[in-house]
């Protein structure tokens, strides 16, 4: 199949590139592209103007706006806050990615480390507990990457409940500030989430929870 289709594909490739070059009056190259890209006017706001506390409050507001709960605590209090949230939600069996800080895990719950659980197995747990890479105050978004403590994408997707720990130091105000931080790890699989999954496909009414986690709690750690 590959051979036969490859042939068709190769000719299409050549034809498409030829048509583009015709339309553009010639071929482009790296030097021209870099020069052009550097010339793009970027007069938009790149760095936030808010103070630290104001930025954190904004993030909390935005997350609550998306129907997530937010609690703030010190590093030493994380396990206690996690326990409180899980009790409130009635969750017992929680999947955690490899490399999540063990000191975040309270006693009295069953934490299952994800070492390649099947989708069906993930569907069977009560929820997932992870850390995060960056959070954006202006949009109420949290960014996850496939690193220690955050895990592969399916882990934060299939369970119905997500408890996410965000470090205050990882909170930025604007989207460009977040991209600045993500640049170093742009090769990793990256997921932005802003509140629980939702849809507005029915009469534009926002409904919380369709396929991704329907319930979200965030712990903001100083």
């Amino acid at each position: 199949m590959v051979g036969e289709e490859g042939e068709v594909g190769v000719s299409a490739r050549g034809e498409i590139l030829r048509r583009i070059r015709n339309a553009n009056g010639g071929a482009s190259d790296e030097t021209a592209a870099v020069a052009g890209w550097n010339g793009i006017a970027r007069a938009y706001k790149r760095v936030g103007l808010r103070g630290r506390d104001e930025t954190l409050h904004l993030l909390e507001d935005r997350l609550r706006d998306y129907d997530a709960t937010v609690s703030r605590c010190s590093e030493g209090e994380v396990a206690a806050v996690v326990a409180r949230r899980l009790l409130e939600r009635g969750k017992r069996r929680i999947v955690v990615p490899v490399g999540l800080k063990p000191e975040w895990l309270p006693a009295g719950f069953e934490f299952v480390t994800d070492e390649g659980l099947s989708a069906k197995e993930l569907d069977g747990v009560d929820g997932v507990l992870t850390g995060s890479t960056v959070a954006i105050a202006e949009t109420g978004s949290v960014v996850l990457q496939d690193v220690a403590g955050q895990g592969r994408r399916a882990v934060t997707l299939v369970p119905d409940y997500h408890l996410c720990v965000v470090r205050v130091a990882d909170v930025v105000e604007t989207v460009p500030e977040a991209f600045e931080r993500l640049r170093a790890t742009e090769g990793l699989a990256t997921t932005f989430f802003s509140g629980p999954s939702a849809t507005a496909d029915i009469e534009m009414t926002r409904i919380k929870g369709v396929h991704g986690p329907r319930f979200l709690d965030v712990v903001l750690v100083d």
Binding site: S141, R153, A189, T190, T191, F192
Partner: peptide, 10 residues
């Protein structure tokens, strides 16, 4: 302000 999910993969 942001839609619930953005996925970026390589």
């Amino acid at each position: 302000r942001m839609n619930p999910y953005n996925s970026i993969w390589n």
